[in-house]
Amino acid sequence: MRRVEHIMGFPISVDLRNGDPAAVDRAFEWLREVDARFSPFRADSEVSRLDRAEPAPNGLSPDLAHVLDLCDHYERATGGAFSARIPGRGLDPCAVVKGWAVQRAADLLAAAGSTSFVINAGGDVATSGGPWRVGVRHPLEADRYCTVLEVTSEAVATSARYERGNHILDARTGRPVTDLLSLTVVAPTLTVADATATAAFAMGVAGIEWAAEQEGCEVFAVDADHGVHRTAGLPVAGASVAGASVAG
């Protein structure tokens, strides 16, 4: 079964090939809960309340504490290029919340017995029971792919600067990153893939190598000069498409 819902401002598609369809309901229910609890755009969310330093009745929830730990980890690991607390802006852990929440939705489907599914949350992909072919959107042409990956159960996340739309800031300077167009990370979980892609993008071109050094991560990146970078272990679909590779 396939289902698409719009939550957190982006479309979330579930393509469930086996298992209990009711699990899809629970997965979407979880994602709506995440939106209510962690959105910085909702005044009554846990994140907004924390940002206003309002005391929570039962203290920080374990989920929010976990998310903040993840944010701190990536802030340290990127030397401050990535931050959930960019000066002059409110607390915004969205970059970490998204991957983490969708990975947990994937875990819910797996726990309910599904061994074959794809979740695509606004371009970030969690999979199980592939092979799944994942097209990576061309950074300059919205209707084309710049590469196609093939994964079995890995996650794929892309951070990019397209012609219009989102700009990722380097928290060290407060300025948008301009030397990268697109950076894609393949990792064992979407929690890692999404956070690594976002954090690496904030570092600019230096983030390509940084991401490649992260445990279990493979990287595909297009820089502002249209140079294509990729790690040797990147799971490009079809050997002929790979074109070139180097020994790792």
């Binding site: 401002g9 982006f10 479309p11 598609s13 393509d15 998204k98 794809v118 695509n120 606004g122 371009g123 970030d124 992909v125 799944w132 072919r133 994942v134 097209g135 990576v136 959107r137 792919y145 196609v148 990956l149 794929v156 996340a157 892309t158 951070s159 990019a160 600067r161 397209y162 739309g165 989102n166 697109s182 894609t184 679909a237 079809g238 498409v241």
Partner: peptide, 12 residues
């Protein structure tokens, strides 16, 4: 390539 899904920066 026939693909199952597409990865890209967050689609609104």
């Amino acid at each position: 390539a026939d693909v199952d899904t597409v990865s890209g920066a967050t689609t609104t």
